[in-house]
Amino acid sequence: MIELRDIHRTFKMGDDLVHALTGVSLKILRGDYVSIMGPSGSGKSTLLNLLGCLDRSDSGIYLFEGRDVSSLSDTELSSLRQNRIGFVFQFFHLISRLTAAENIELPMIFAGIDRKERRDRIMEGLNSVGLAHRAKHRPEQLSGGERQKIAIARAIAMRPSILLADEPTGNLDSKSGREIIDLLESMNQNGLTLVIVTHDSLIGSRATRKVKISDGKIVSIL
């Protein structure tokens, strides 16, 4: 479903050019469970941003479900992120003034889904992460693990085909981290394509396909 061919991405940092990705090629199949591992600065976050259509490559071809992403307009990319891609972040990125349910509702509001459908999907999402009793709580009233679960429920609210998780356990204790990984893996078993970026080799090694990246290059795919 995803194919990267010889992707290059360079940033300008002051007067220096940083070659974040130099010739990355990668295929991700539907239902895959992929981990992307590497030390910080290796380019793994840049790769994830590219996969999530938050960033564009300088050269190379990115096919998402057969479409050439580089030819899409900003609005088309927004629509792609909205409908096909779910994001989970290290720092959760929940909006603190909104309740758990309202945070889950957010992507559906911007997608223009009607109120009744939204309510159903919020309940469904809360149930699937086991936090139905926390719907009216605000983020600061939730534990770290609970916050990440709400963020996951938000990420799948639009029924994406792929979930991109950037260090999803990086800000959690090991018990909560394990719960989150279990939750993500169970969703993967139900058919959701899962990509996890991590520098934790214990978590990375659980994936069915393990991508190691260093200095902007893929070193190994196991």
Binding site: D74, T75, S78, N83, F89, I95, L106, P107, M158
Partner: peptide, 16 residues
């Protein structure tokens, strides 16, 4: 800023 970034990741367009 981070909220705006999130909204973009969730598929909000510039116009929205």
């Amino acid at each position: 800023t981070s909220e705006i970034g999130l909204l973009k990741a969730l598929g909000a367009t510039r116009f929205q």
